[in-house]
Design a protein around this nucleic acid. Structure first.
Length: 491
RNA sequence: GGCGCUAUCGUCUAGGGGUUAGGACGGAAGAUUCUCAAUCUUCAAACCCGGGUUCGAUUCCCGGUAGCGCUACCA
């Protein structure tokens, strides 16, 4: 199955409606469109589907752009549906003139009635559908409000079909499709109409979107047909769902569904993109850790699967890390490790500075290799590299200074001897190594017993990067000061 | 209710008429190291159920079940 007509570059679009923040599911749809465009040297279009005036907010527009900006994926053309209302209306009335739509003067029914009322399938309002053209024109001229509905073929045995690049051939009886609205009684186009009119006008070649639109596509095929244009190639994506099996929603699942949450927690955009790509798509070669370039090279519609994917976060998250799918966190750690030290350091510095720590770029560059394999999220720098950044260590339990199978006398002995050695030894890895190991031997201790009290004295905790590199970065002055404080804690 | 889509380890997935059903995350155990991390090794863990078709189905077909989607003058 060809992804595109040979020789013709595809045109794809991401068309969010600005009624909320940028959702992870939307982000994935954007990414798949983008990957498809870039892989095939096509055009990526961003279109704001803002025909629902009631629910649109500028805040939402900003949040969508914020999220997309962070992802760092560009687009080639940008449109706003509200600028294109004339096109939509023209398209709707052209369909009406062909007799394929009719005015429905019945007042809009409310959602409440639908919920509490009969569960039968509503297809159309018979009175309205059968109204003569003359009668219809007369009522319209009298100023009666109406919605414009598509006249779906009835009782003809007709069938609507299309091919989906993911779900294959789709067929539905026209008799099962309701007379959906094209224009609302306020004259505004509905999503279905606006979307199709724009897709046709913008020459969209491939519509890659969520599977929630799979059944809507039959209506869209009808609209394209009525408008006299060939429908684009469709490719529907399986949905992203929560561990409880329901769709991701901010109300139920909180901030995990918002792209900016990942950004703020210290995800690398390339890791986040990598993670999202693995939900509902596979390169089929057992590779999981992929760079953006590799994703562009390997992406294809054939790799998309058909079943919904769970974003596996813990519902009541105990720690920030648990807020996210473990695989997302792992991938982020992988991408962090793959980053050159210089580049990682540049990403870490603003986080450290924003936390109020005055660290120079040079110092950050020296700290970075020591924490690179110890952080999973960029923000972990705050808990992993704290002792490099603060002047004075926060209080810690002096018992931590006591080495394995030792007592406080041993700790005191170690620290006292360390202070003497560290006053004169060169603060370089090898000299520190030799001097401190020699001291351990001289005191009749294991290396670990020697190093732990020093580590706790300078880091304030037992778990930290390797000692000699740490001392090197800390410097003699800070080291001696912290050892002195540790000795007084013991005493 | 109607219509549609889906169903492989806990999660993401590969596979496909005959396989020890593969990989990854997470979990467990071990190795290594000055602690932690990283790294390496090993282990546990899956084809929704029932009927066909077939010499043989997890794979193909049908049915059931479950989940999801659509069923708005939301998108």
């Amino acid at each position: 199955m060809a992804d595109s007509v040979p020789g013709i570059a595809p045109r794809v679009r991401f068309a969010p409606s600005p009624t909320g923040f940028l959702h992870v599911g939307s982000a994935r749809t954007f990414i798949f469109n983008w990957l498809y465009a870039r892989h095939n040297h096509g055009t990526m279009i961003l279109r704001l589907d803002d025909t629902d005036v009631e629910r649109n907010t500028q805040q939402s527009v900003d949040s969508i752009f914020d999220g997309l900006k962070w992802l760092g994926l560009n687009w080639d053309e940008e449109y706003k549906q509200s600028d294109r209302l004339e096109l939509h209306r023209k398209t709707a009335w052209a369909i009406f003139e062909k007799g394929l739509a009719y005015r429905d003067f019945t007042p809009a029914h409310t959602g409440d009635a639908e919920k509490s009322g009969a569960q039968g399938t509503w297809l159309f309002n018979p009175g309205a559908r059968e109204l003569s053209r003359e009668e219809s024109d007369r009522c319209a001229a009298a100023g009666e409000p109406f919605a414009l509905r598509f006249r779906v073929p009835r009782q003809t045995g007709q069938v609507v079909r299309f091919n989906d690049a993911v779900y294959g051939d789709q067929v539905k009886a026209a008799d099962d499709i309701e007379d959906f609205a094209l224009l609302r009684s306020d004259g505004m186009p509905t999503y279905h109409l606006a979307s199709c009119a724009d897709d046709a006008d913008l020459c969209i070649s491939h519509i890659i979107r969520g599977q929630d639109h799979l059944t809507n596509t039959f209506k869209h095929v009808l609209i394209f047909g009525a408008a006299g244009v060939a429908p684009p190639q469709f490719a529907h994506l399986p949905l992203l769902i929560a561990p409880d099996g329901t769709k991701l929603s901010k109300r139920r699942h909180g901030p995990v569904v918002s792209v900016t949450t990942y950004r703020d927690a210290g995800f690398l955009p390339e890791a986040f993109i990598n993670f999202l790509c693995l939900l509902g798509w596979s390169p089929k070669n057992d590779r999981e850790n992929l760079s953006l370039q590799e994703l562009i090279e390997t992406f294809s519609l054939e790799g998309i699967n058909r079943s919904n994917a769970v974003v596996n976060f813990k519902e009541p998250a105990a720690t920030q890390e648990e807020t996210f799918d473990p695989k997302a966190v792992w991938l982020n750690a992988e991408h962090i490790r793959a980053l050159p030290v210089q580049s990682l350091s540049e990403r870490l510095l603003p986080i450290v500075r924003a936390h109020g720590w005055d660290v120079s770029p040079e110092k950050m560059l020296r700290i970075t290799p020591l924490i690179r394999e110890r952080i999973k999220l960029l923000r972990d720098v705050l808990t992993t590299a704290d002792f490099f950044c603060v002047k004075q260590l926060p209080p810690y339990d002096p018992a931590e200074l006591i080495p394995q199978k030792g007592d406080s006398a041993m700790a005191l002995k170690v620290l006292t001897r360390a202070r003497e050695i560290l006053a004169t030894v060169e603060f370089q890895h090898d000299p520190l190594d030799h001097a401190l190991r020699a001291a351990a031997q001289e005191l009749g201790l294991k290396a670990g017993q020697m190093f732990q009290p020093i580590r706790v004295a300078v880091c304030g905790r037992k778990n930290a990067p390797p000692l000699f590199e740490t001392l090197e970065v800390l410097g003699r002055e800070t080291t001696l000061d912290r050892i002195a404080r540790a000795i007084s804690k013991l005493g």
